[in-house]
Amino acid sequence: MNTVAPWRRLLAEYVGTALLVTAVVGSGIMATELSPDDVGLQLLQNSIATALALGALILTFGPVSGAHFNPVVSAADWWLGRRHGTGLTGRDLAGYAVAQTLGGIAGSVLANLMFDLAAVTLSGKERSGAHLWLGEVVATTGLLLLIFALVRSGRAAVAPAAVGAYIGAAYWFTSSTSFANPAVTVGRAFTDTFAGIAPASVPAYVGAQLVGLLAGIGLIVALYPNAGAGADDVVVPHDSAEQARGRG
């Protein structure tokens, strides 16, 4: 059970998600400025920056909140941990989801401002189609399988590198470029840049991610029946060791 003060955990989730979206959006803007005529190169630059930033952010905020940065990850943590008395409580889940979503919006605003754009520019980039929604289901399911496989096998310490690598790769092997995160999806609606998504496209993307959540939980239960016992280590171990040593 994580006994770090709730406000500290929520702050970590808010700031971490904000910086993740800042990395996604900011690197997309920079990529279009540096390589204006090569969309493939733009995606490469965007995916590398996102993967590296995600790994660094998990290392930074993981000891406080677990570095979920994603309502789907938090929901899986809550659901799978209930039977074992581990992971997030229902109240924690609600707080995490709100903090992550607000952080996602703040991240887009910050990226816009850094590149001298209006603070809020709603995206006009339509992302719609069954093939894209399927890509989101695949990306989200795979992300959850990876995280809980690492926890179940006692390898959560490598999650920063593994999760960053997965997201970087999923940019390329999924048709949707792997949003796989409702908070990030909502946040990216607030920037009319390379990484943006039109507000009208957001509900279907989030719906697909929720389908991926259900599929991921089902596969995790089938493959790793006791994965919930390690829910306190999702995405990385975040027990109260610091507080136990009197340095909280």
Rank of each mutant, 00 (worst) to 15 (best):
G187V: 03
D192P: 03
A162F: 03
V158A: 13
F148T: 05
S176Q: 02
G164Y: 07
S153W: 15
V202G: 03
A149Q: 12
S175D: 12
I167R: 01
P182S: 03
G168Y: 08
A139L: 02
L146R: 11
G168S: 09
V163I: 15
A195I: 06
E136P: 01
A149M: 14
A170L: 05
A198C: 04
P199W: 08
F194M: 08
A183G: 04
R155K: 14
A195G: 04
A156M: 06
A169N: 05
S176R: 00
A139H: 02
W172N: 14
F179H: 11
V158P: 02
V151E: 11
V137I: 15
A157H: 14
S153Y: 14
G196W: 06
S153P: 00
T185M: 01
T140N: 08
F148N: 07
G129K: 07
P199R: 07
V158C: 04
G196D: 10
S178Q: 14
G187F: 01
A165H: 10
G164W: 11
G187R: 00
W172G: 08
A139V: 11
G164R: 02
A156H: 07
R152E: 13
E136L: 09
P203C: 09
I197F: 04
A165F: 15
T193N: 13
A198H: 06
R152L: 05
I147V: 15
L144Q: 10
V163R: 02
G154Y: 15
I147W: 04
A149P: 11
G196S: 14
T185H: 01
W133K: 09
A156Q: 12
G142D: 04
F179G: 01
V138C: 03
A195C: 06
A195R: 09
P182G: 05
G187P: 02
V186K: 00
W133P: 00
V158Y: 11
I197A: 12
T140F: 06
